[in-house]
């Protein structure tokens, strides 16, 4: 049983004029076997949380801690975090010209598993994973994300999730920009990943649409850089009905008082 604990996390980002605090004290615990939906309006800091956990250099953590089974994640380099079992499916995956998808996947698997996968098994494994996500095999010889459509990039993020099998996955708006069919394919991929029962997921989303395919155990509402309410799946239903207005007002009221 693994645990990812986020405690009073504050983070800021440098804009051209000033440093701006985006995360204002995030508290959250995800245990293996749990799926947490993390919902909030645009600009609430959801992606910042994802990047701060992964260690993106643009975001500076000013207070708090992120513990993976008691180990301080914030003291690790970006690649150490990944090797420790954290994964971030990015909202806007980066293009890396000249690096083939197959070379990239194999390098990543070698790094996270601690040894190079045996070539025969590996080829089979990748092929199976690509088939599961309706990805054409020709993609493995293309440069990482280069010229991929939005949907293709998202499928490849889930392909990496499937192959690397991290302990905890943060999925940053993996559902955005997907059509109905692609959403189903990607959701099936996430469900395959969690089916072993020992994985933890932090599913960041703006819409409730994906939650019809991926059932969360917990739903958190994120406003103004912190969690303002937590509940079960019924909280998502309320958001579906009424939107974020109740929570944004609540937050403003709290700020004013």
């Amino acid at each position: 049983m693994a645990t990812l604990e986020i405690k009073d996390l504050h983070a800021e980002v440098d804009t051209e004029e000033e440093s701006k605090e985006i995360l204002t004290g995030v508290n959250l615990t995800v245990r293996s076997g749990e799926t947490h939906a993390f919902m909030g309006p645009n600009g609430s800091g959801k992606s910042t949380l994802a990047y701060a956990i992964a260690g993106h250099p643009k975001y500076r953590v000013t207070a708090g801690s992120v513990l993976l089974d008691g180990e301080e994640v914030l003291e690790m380099s970006v690649d150490e975090r990944a090797r420790a079992g954290l994964f971030l499916a990015m909202q806007y995956p980066v293009e890396v010209p000249g690096v083939s998808m197959s070379n990239f996947l194999r390098s990543a698997a070698t790094a996270t598993r601690g040894e190079a996968p045996q070539i025969r098994h590996w080829v089979k494994e990748v092929k199976q994973a690509m088939n599961n996500l309706d990805i054409d095999e020709s993609f493995s010889e293309r440069s990482v994300n280069e010229g991929f459509s939005g949907g293709e990039k998202k499928r490849h993020e889930i392909l990496q999730l499937d192959l690397l099998k991290p302990t905890f996955a943060v999925l940053d708006e993996t559902d955005s920009g997907l059509d109905v069919d692609a959403l189903r394919v990607v959701s099936d991929g996430i469900n395959r990943y969690t089916e072993s029962g020992d994985k933890g997921v932090l599913l960041i989303t703006h819409y409730t649409r994906i939650l019809k395919h991926v059932r969360p155990d917990y739903v958190h509402v994120f406003v103004g850089g912190q969690v303002v309410e937590s509940g079960g799946p019924e909280l998502a239903d309320e958001l579906e009905e009424s939107g974020y207005v109740r929570f944004t007002e609540k937050k403003e009221a709290a700020v004013q008082s």
């Binding site: 380099s77 990944a82 990015m90 995956p93 980066v94 890396v96 690096v99 070379n103 390098s107 440069s143």
Partner: peptide, 30 residues
Amino acid sequence: FDDEQLFYLQARGIPYDQARRLVVRGFFGE
């Protein structure tokens, strides 16, 4: 040199030096 590319590769567990090598090799690879 693109920090975003490095971040992406590192976020998949690939160590910094190797990530840098991959990016530069990719640049010249063509």
